[in-house]
């Protein structure tokens, strides 16, 4: 049977023919590396709390330290190797967010610091910001509860 007779038939045939990602291995790696990054965050958070910062400030410090670490590793050309191994384990924690800003900044350096780095830094991450106004929905909720 010719698999290219209908578009749907061909799509199904291709899906069957394409190898799957090694999902068990990927899930395992994502789990322990993601857990590890969060645990490092927890330890930093605990240290901040011990030093007398309030919980909000401590949380911000944790974010800044993890972002700095991720930017440092991206700059050393190591983060893409980590990301390949960890998958979502490094993408979903704040490290992935930092990487998604630092990597285009480095890539578009060749187009200059204004139109390259400045304009394209948020190529990957900018969607996060536009979407946060989803939350408007519960702001209104809140206001109506007055």
């Amino acid at each position: 049977m010719d698999p290219t007779q209908t578009k749907q038939g061909y799509q199904d045939y291709v899906d069957k023919k394409s190898p799957n990602s090694p999902i068990a291995k990927n899930l395992f790696n994502a789990f322990w590396t993601g857990g590890l990054i969060c645990s490092i965050g927890q330890i930093i958070l605990n240290i901040c709390k011990e030093r007398g910062f309030d919980i909000t400030t401590s949380g911000t410090i944790v974010s800044i330290i993890l972002i700095g670490l991720s930017a440092f590793l991206t700059g050393l050309n190591i983060f893409n190797k980590i990301g390949k191994f960890c998958g979502a384990g490094s993408l979903i924690p704040i490290t992935g967010f930092a990487n998604s800003i630092v990597s285009p900044a480095m890539e578009y350096k060749s187009e200059g610091y204004v139109m390259g780095v400045g304009a394209k830094m948020f190529t990957v991450a900018r969607t996060c910001f536009s979407f946060w106004y989803f939350k408007c929905y519960y702001c209104w909720n809140y206001i109506f509860n007055f």
Binding site: S21, F79, P104, V124
Partner: peptide, 17 residues
């Protein structure tokens, strides 16, 4: 990669296809 996909230093996984 730069034109069609992602910056080189982005830590993503390539699918097997």
């Amino acid at each position: 990669e730069k034109q069609f996909r992602f910056p080189l230093e982005l830590g993503n996984q390539r699918p097997p296809t």
